[in-house]
Design a protein around this nucleic acid. Structure first.
Length: 684
RNA sequence: GGUGAUGUAGCUCAGCUGGUUAGAGCACAGGAUUCAUAAUCCUGGGGUCGAGGGUUCAAGUCCCUCUUUCACCA
């Protein structure tokens, strides 16, 4: 039965080029879509550029163009990159579209009518020169820990410390250089906290991978915060209908961009939008995303849909990140490789599609692009094994039999390859591409073994064996046809060339049970694919090396968003000195460790019972598990903070803090008093 | 500090609900072959499955502790 399926990939931000990390997702999705289409299902694959937000606005300004001109240019670039990597969207649109404006407004109004919108006055950093509110990323200053200059508002790239923008020393606006001030403003919130019951239910109903559902559990444990969905002018985005000067936060209209892109496709192809998005839709909806934006797709998005009267996603497929040679992509190492740069150097996009597919599975594990392995694998699998089957047999058919086939009636190898169809099918369907390709390569080995065993080059020299020769080679080409069919979701362009070579109609899954008929005429064989020269890869890496200091590490979308959603808290700037009065507020005591034990389930904690001369020993959880065996601690004296507010931890109350020394060289080392100190003595 | 993952041959990875001497590809060694843009076939060496403890007749596979790498949160 033909299914109706709508598939999306995450929307790339219109502020940068597509790189090899992005491509993991688009290639993964494209393979799945092509596979489902080959199965005969109705599939629409839509995507769009994510175009709104402060970074786009500012970049356009810097380049002296309008945001619209910027996103138009990026849209062209992205579209070209995807097309060349054979990522075949049914529609690649933009979130800055009329359809999206209308849908975003409608959804907002429905959320409001359902009582899910609230307003709240918050305090944010404000650039008094530029007259705009500043996201954390646009506040820079000196790192409070290592004092590196020009660090971002949320973390230091030199020492790795994380902090609040308020902690930066000599903070300044990255836009104007002015010192930011705090300013109050009214923001609109989506009352996510009221959606908890619905979301708990939804995230556990099989819509997420197991690991993803576990991850979601964390958010529930901490309680859901209302989601800040507005930004103040100036902002490049959609103005909120009933709130002049307030704009939808980019993440509100981005997922609605999936709908808008599809709406646009409906207009072009006369499809029924509501059939796919109405609350009771019988169609299927799948979102392919990176694990970093799970938060938006598994919490905000389904809640938005639910309370605006729409259907929810059927499933969300999250994948891991790409590493190159086992490490994060890095500009200084030359492994931050753009799609364009790959095309310039390696040329053939199907090599990368094949390699990614060989590595992909249905989990959220990161996948590694090992460049040496990439060359070896592509050369060995695609050229040595797969293409070689045709390359070594087609010549005989063309030269000796005028391109005419004479397949045998019964070939056990062909039967075996055909019978693997279900295994391959299931693997693709479950997004276990690595498994599918392993099976296909196993079959390729069998096919090559068949040719080696029959040795057509020997038969060719024997008198009166023409028919046998023709059969062996025809059968090998039939094997090749089947393998091509299996590989087609991954290698669509190559499959297309092979269809022409074999002179057959475009392969779909039904063609598994067909065969090349007797007397079928094939075209002459021309070499279809060449080996990668490792020098090409070296040149690519070299070309991507940036000698300059690494440009800012892109913060993950999630961190970015969550920070934006947090209100700026009014931390007092720490003074350099404290008074004696401040110090005496801290009640330090000599403590005797009465008992020490491991805490089940805790990574770094030990549970200590500390005697400080009170009736009952204090229970304290200390993060010293890595350095101390509990048994050796019992009986020792150390120092604790006795008047620290008790804190409820996952494992119980912690009624104090043990002091310990550490830095990057080692630790923690707990303190020991000199001989004579007694439990309970005050330290000052 | 918390949470979710992760650690299996030189490299990249399979190993489902625990069950014979732990698998594949690449790389390496030896042999065969020459149809194929040095591709193919056969054979072989190589792993105390991150470390330690436990459950079990039986553990890479379950439990605990420690540890590696990564991500997210604080």
């Amino acid at each position: 039965m033909a299914r109706k399926i709508l598939v999306t990939s995450a929307l790339p931000y219109a502020n940068g080029s597509i790189h090899l990390g992005h491509l993991v997702e688009y290639i993964q999705t494209d393979i799945w879509v092509r596979f489902q289409k080959m199965q005969g299902h109705t599939v629409h694959y839509v995507c769009a550029d994510d175009t709104h937000g402060t970074p786009i606005m500012l970049r356009a300004e810097k380049e002296g163009i309008t945001p619209e001109a910027l996103i138009d240019a990026v849209h062209k670039e992205h579209s070209a990159d995807f097309a060349e990597f054979l990522v075949e969207f049914d529609n690649y649109y933009s979130t800055n579209s009329e359809e999206n404006r209308v849908l975003s407004s409608e959804i907002y109004k429905k959320l409001k009518a359902n009582g899910k919108i609230a307003t709240k006055t918050i305090e944010q950093f404000y650039d008094p020169v530029k007259n705009m509110f500043l996201p954390d990323r646009f506040i820079k200053g000196e790192c409070p820990k290592c004092h590196a200059k020009d660090q971002y508002g949320d973390s230091c790239e030199v020492c790795g410390a994380t902090y609040n923008p308020t902690e930066l020393i000599n903070a300044y606006s990255a836009v104007s250089g002015a010192a930011p001030v705090r300013k109050e403003t009214e923001h609109y919130f989506f009352k996510l906290s009221e959606c908890e019951a619905f979301l708990k239910d939804w995230t556990r109903s099989g819509t997420l991978q197991g690991e993803a559902a576990n991850k979601m559990g964390e958010w529930f444990e901490n309680g859901l915060n209302d989601w800040d969905i507005s930004r103040d002018a100036p902002y490049f985005g959609f103005e909120i209908p009933d709130a002049p000067g307030k704009y939808f936060y980019v993440w509100l209209d981005a997922p609605i961009g999936y709908m808008a892109s599809f709406k646009n496709l409906c207009e072009k192809q006369n499809l029924n939008f509501d059939e796919y998005w109405a609350k009771d839709s019988k169609t299927e909806l799948y979102h392919f995303i990176g694990k970093d934006i799970l938060y938006f797709h598994a919490l905000f998005w389904p809640a938005t849909l639910e309370y605006s009267g729409h259907r929810k996603p059927t499933q969300i497929f999250a994948h891991g990140f790409l590493t190159v040679n086992g490490e994060k992509m890095s500009k200084s190492r030359g492994t931050f490789i753009t799609a364009r740069s790959y095309l310039d150097h390696i040329k053939n996009p199907e090599y990368l599609r094949y390699y990614y597919a060989a590595k992909l599975n249905s989990t959220m594990e990161d996948i590694d692009l090992n460049l040496e392995d990439f060359v070896a694998r592509v050369n060995s699998d695609l050229v040595g094994k797969y293409i070689n089957i045709a390359s070594r047999t087609a010549g005989f058919i063309n030269k000796r039999f005028d391109g005419k086939l004479y397949p045998s009636a019964n070939n056990t190898v062909i039967s075996e390859i055909k019978s693997a169809a279900q295994t391959v099918e299931e693997a693709y369907s479950a997004r276990e591409y690595g498994k599918a390709l392993r099976e296909i390569m196993r079959l390729s080995d069998i096919a090559n073994g068949y040719v080696a065993e029959k040795a057509p080059w020997v038969i060719a020299k024997q008198e009166g064996q023409d028919t046998v020769l023709q059969q062996v080679c025809s059968d090998a080409l039939e094997m090749f046809r089947l393998l091509t069919l299996y590989l087609k979701p991954v290698l669509p362009k190559l499959a297309d060339q092979i269809e022409q070579f074999l002179n057959i109609a475009p392969l779909n899954w039904l063609a598994v049970s067909a065969s090349l008929p007797v007397q079928h005429q094939i075209q002459s064989y021309e070499h279809l694919i060449t080996r990668i020269d490792p020098k090409q890869v070296e040149a690519m890496v070299e070309a991507n090396k940036e000698s300059l200091q690494a440009s800012p590490q892109p913060h993950s979308e999630q961190r970015h968003a969550v920070h934006q959603q947090n209100e700026v808290k009014a931390d007092a700037v720490e003074a350099e000195y404290i008074s004696i009065d401040d110090f005496t507020k801290v009640d330090l005591r000599i403590a005797k460790i009465v008992s020490a034990e491991h805490v089940e389930g805790a990574e770094k904690l030990l549970k200590l019972m500390l005697d400080i001369g009170e009736d009952q020993p204090r229970q304290v959880f200390a993060g010293i598990k890595s350095a101390y065996d509990p048994a050796t601690l019992v009986g020792r004296l150390t120092v604790m903070v006795a008047n620290l507010a008790p804190r409820k931890m996952k494992f119980g109350m912690s009624e104090g803090m043990v002091l310990a020394a550490s830095n990057e060289l080692g630790g923690p080392f707990i303190l020991s008093p000199d001989v004579g100190a007694q439990a309970g003595m005050r330290v000052k």
